[in-house]
């Protein structure tokens, strides 16, 4: 390993850390107090979950049923049928915009802020 190798490896590590820090800052700062989880199958919304209730849900994926669990404002895929089980290994997610993706099942779960789209705006009276 020569000097330019070490410099290059350093650049990659720094870039990874900077990117990680930026993403972490972005997701924590963009998560509001009330959140909903949106579950999509093949880009179509199939389920909207209120994150304040501890409850279990089931949706139909491509390879079989996907079991979703909500607890203490965090969500996870509890059980699913796929070759590597990457989405259940991912574990609990509680921040907005951090997707849980189960590619073999074509299921994407993403947390959104419940107050992001205020309905009251068009009825505002001055």
């Amino acid at each position: 390993m020569n000097r330019s190798d070490k410099i290059f490896i350093g650049i990659v590590l720094i870039a990874a850390l900077v990117l990680y820090g930026t993403m972490q800052w972005f997701v924590t700062s963009s998560t509001g107090a009330d959140t909903v989880a949106v579950v999509s199958y093949r880009d179509k919304e199939v389920l909207r979950i209120d994150m304040s209730q501890n409850k279990n849900y089931t949706v139909q994926g491509t390879l079989g049923e996907v079991f979703i669990e909500v607890k203490d404002k965090a969500i996870r895929v509890e059980k699913e049928t796929s070759p590597y089980h990457l989405c259940s290994i991912q574990g609990w997610v509680k921040y907005a915009n951090v997707p849980i993706v189960c590619l073999p099942n074509h299921i994407v779960i993403i947390i959104e802020n419940a107050t992001e789209d205020p309905d009251g705006e068009d009825t505002q009276v001055k």
């Binding site: 990874a16 993403m23 997701v27 951090v98 993706v101 994407v108």
Partner: peptide, 19 residues
């Protein structure tokens, strides 16, 4: 493919393992 740029979230982890 997923239509969201948020998958970039995985990139730092992948880069750390790429070294």
């Amino acid at each position: 493919l997923n239509g969201t740029w948020l998958m970039v979230y995985w990139l730092p982890i992948m880069w750390l393992s790429a070294v």
